[in-house]
């Protein structure tokens, strides 16, 4: 069995800023290693070749590993439809933009707008994520529409804006403004959900296991148990994230809103975590 294709960033390429759209396992599969090295990357004239920026090893196939400080590489994994792309190191802005299948795993932090306009597949970020996680593509009315995002660390402001479908799990805290204008879908925050979450949301579910202070446009609908959460918790644990010890035993206080809009969204907070 051959080793997966591995591209290791050369020291001279550190700090380079480039649009890396198209650097996908599905595009490279079927090419020889030499052909991979001769592929241009980025946009415009004078584009560098992959072999100039990366040391190439392994054989192209359904998996591709990129290694190095990729914080200057924008749109890594953009438009991905299948296969597995692993980034060992920090990822630049818009990682996984518009992806609709496959698995993109970032073994480090991700910059802003990761998973923007996502339509399927799995985006996993082992570190923190920047602002506007899973935001809409520029000019689009909806944000994430299917798929799953797991962030093991914290996320920046305005995550899951106008989310339409899918599931996002945040391992630690979510900064203010999460799920604004949410249309549907689920955002589970194992830490604390920041201020202003769910403003103008129509439907959908926010779960704040570490507590939250809902806006006044969310009405307290009392506490009860929600059996569907157990299904999520099994998936979260299967993904290797640890739940707070009280997550299963607690009753959840349900805040419904945003009543200045459709008002069918909900924020679930375990009792005692408010």
């Amino acid at each position: 069995m051959s080793a997966p294709l591995r591209l290791k960033l050369r020291p001279k390429a550190d700090g380079i800023a480039i649009d890396a759209e198209g650097l996908l396992p599905e595009r490279l599969a079927g090419l020889s290693r030499g052909e991979v090295e001769r592929l241009p990357i980025g946009t415009g004239g004078g584009r560098p070749l992959l072999g100039d920026l990366f040391a190439v090893s392994g054989d192209p196939g359904e998996s591709l590993d990129l290694e190095g400080d990729l914080s200057g590489f924008a749109r890594l994994g953009a438009g991905m439809t299948r296969g597995r792309l692993t980034l060992v190191g920090p990822a630049g802005p818009c990682a996984g933009s518009g992806m609709c299948g496959g698995e993109l795993c970032i073994e480090g932090p991700a910059s802003d707008r990761a998973g923007e306009g996502m339509r399927g597949g799995l985006l996993r970020i082992r570190g923190d994520a920047g602002d506007q996680l899973a935001s809409p593509l520029p000019g689009h009315p909806h944000g994430m529409n299917r798929g799953a995002i797991i962030v093991e660390g914290s996320v920046g402001t305005m995550s899951a804006t106008r989310m339409r479908r899918g599931t996002i799990v945040i391992g630690r805290d979510a900064a203010p403004g999460a799920a604004c204008g949410m249309l549907s879908g689920t955002l589970i925050v194992l830490g604390r959900l920041g201020e202003g979450a769910g403003a103008l949301m129509r439907r959908g579910t926010l779960v704040a296991l570490g507590g939250a202070r809902p806006l006044p446009v969310f009405l307290d609908a009392g506490a009860c148990r929600h059996p569907f959460l157990e299904l999520y918790y099994r998936q979260i644990e299967a993904a290797g994230l640890a739940l707070p010890p009280t997550a299963r035993a607690a009753r959840y206080r349900r805040h419904v809103g945003d009543i200045s809009d459709l008002g069918q969204g909900e924020i679930l907070i375990p009792e005692g975590a408010e």
């Binding site: 579910t205 929600h226 998936q235």
Partner: peptide, 16 residues
């Protein structure tokens, strides 16, 4: 809710 690729329905009833 679509969880793990399967769709579930949450129907409000008198005990939750």
């Amino acid at each position: 809710k679509v969880i793990g690729g399967r769709r579930y329905w949450r129907i409000p009833v008198m005990d939750g």
